[in-house]
């Protein structure tokens, strides 16, 4: 381990499109998946991450390095996460949430899920459908029936359909 040898251990991660990344072990073990590999002694060579592409992995590594450089201060970590995610579009967020899920990084997973939820917040059904490309496969009658079933959730949100 890094602390014992005195030099920081570096791991090599390989994305599913064969890009290689070096990352400090201390940052990489934010991923429980990678930590388990390190603990099991199978992190010696290149670690293949078959479910993550290079672009997403680069982003995740930026996050790993950024967040692990912050000492144990939850507020600072939160503001780093907010800033890190602030300029990401939904495509990127979707890739990242899948990567975080695969890498078992609960803090990133939680932050990205919250960010996606934030996009949906206080928006009309029509807006959310357009934003995320969700196809409405209800017939008008079916849709009306579902709305009626949960009519309390539609109080006060009818107006922003064009937002």
């Amino acid at each position: 381990m890094a602390a014992e040898t005195g030099t920081p251990t570096t791991l090599t991660l390989k994305s599913n499109d064969d890009e290689l990344f070096s990352v400090a072990e201390s940052a990489a073990i934010l991923s429980v998946t990678i930590r388990n590999m390190v603990e099991d002694g199978c992190a010696g060579g290149v670690i293949p991450l078959d479910n993550v592409d290079g672009k997403t992995l680069a982003s995740v590594i930026t996050y790993m390095n950024g967040i692990s450089a912050i000492p144990a201060d939850e507020e600072k970590k939160k503001s780093y996460r907010d800033k890190f995610l602030s300029d990401k579009d939904f495509e990127t967020l979707a890739d990242m949430v899948l990567a975080a899920n695969y890498l078992n990084m609960s803090c990133l997973m939680d932050a990205v899920s919250a960010k996606i939820a934030q996009v949906m917040e206080k928006k009309s059904v029509g807006w959310v459908r357009r934003k995320f490309g969700i196809e409405n496969d209800y017939t008008p009658e079916e849709e009306a029936a579902v709305k009626e079933e949960h009519k309390w959730t539609f109080e006060g949100v009818e107006t922003d359909d064009d937002n």
Binding site: D110, M120, V125, I134, E135, N136, D137, F154
Partner: peptide
């Protein structure tokens, strides 16, 4: 997205917003 991730996203919504997603599709 896998159900587990969708549940995570819904977790962050208020009750009425989570319920309202039932109308999406």
């Amino acid at each position: 997205l896998p159900q587990g991730i969708l549940q995570q996203i819904l977790y962050h919504l208020s009750q009425e917003e989570a319920v309202r997603t039932s109308v999406l599709s």
